[in-house]
Amino acid sequence: MSMAIRKERIVPRKDTLWHQVRINKASYLLMAPYFILFFLFTVLPVLMSVYLSFNYFNMLEPPRWVGWANYIKLLLEDDIFIISLRNTLLFAVITGPVSYLLCLLFAWIINEFKPRVRAFLTLVFYAPSICGNAYMIWNLILTGDRYGYLNGVLLRMGFLNEPVLWMQTEKFVMPVLIVVQLWLSLGTGFLSFIAGLQTVDKGLYEAAAIDGVKNRWQELWFVTLPAMKPQLMFGAVMQITQSFAVADISIALAGNPSVNYSGATIVTHLLDYGSTRLDMGYASAIATILFLLMVGTNKLVQRILRRVGE
């Protein structure tokens, strides 16, 4: 009887926020070191950038409040932003999903090999990401005279009569950049999938075989993918941040500005204002718009991923 009364008294206390915080003290302590640094070095700079996007700031004079002027100029008057937005969305729609599936496909195939071979194959496919600016090699392939590897091969095979200036011809810039971006795609997502596949419980496959899973595609869809859903989510976020932020390869191969802005992306546009024209307010406004785009896409993609294995 007395036990029951005591319980009644405790129940409402458990619901108070302070009590919840106190019984989870250990959790907060474990998180404290990371989150203190995180707020200091990541959240605070982001908030400052968002504030700067409402200012005119050239890094020499103190910021001057201009309200929505940067955003109005960006969305209504900046033609190049519209081009760069179109190119970025093209990257996001094509390289995003294709890269993601390639990461998954290769991680899955590699997983079938023996451990030593697996480590070596992983290196082979991760090579473009580990060698710093490995994409520079594409400059050799795409050289505009007859000694460029691509021109050489096509001339010899009779597909071309004269060498093509690949990166100086408007219609070739985007397709080439998309190919190079795909070549670079086996990066962060790929390695996390490789690691994710190691953690899938091997017993699940045997159980599935007994339950009537017949071929490896069924096994992939019903067993492997649902078991590594957390990694799939992670890979998707990384893919979004990468395909929306394409810039380095465009600048290295097509230049910034590229011919008629044919290779411009949101981030090359941002870099143009941020580091060449020293208009940090405007660059911050571009970054904020890009951020909103990524957040929206992420929401959409996470919704799709929830259906995997159903």
Binding site: N24, L52, M238, I240, F244, A283, A287, V295
Partner: peptide
């Protein structure tokens, strides 16, 4: 624990903000 969801989403969102412009505040 209280605050779990918001802390986690802030971390995920932070990865989507262009690193180029946060360099100067940093």
């Amino acid at each position: 624990f209280p605050g779990k969801k918001i802390l986690f989403s802030v971390v995920v969102l932070s990865m989507m903000f262009s690193w180029t412009v946060t360099q100067i505040p940093q």
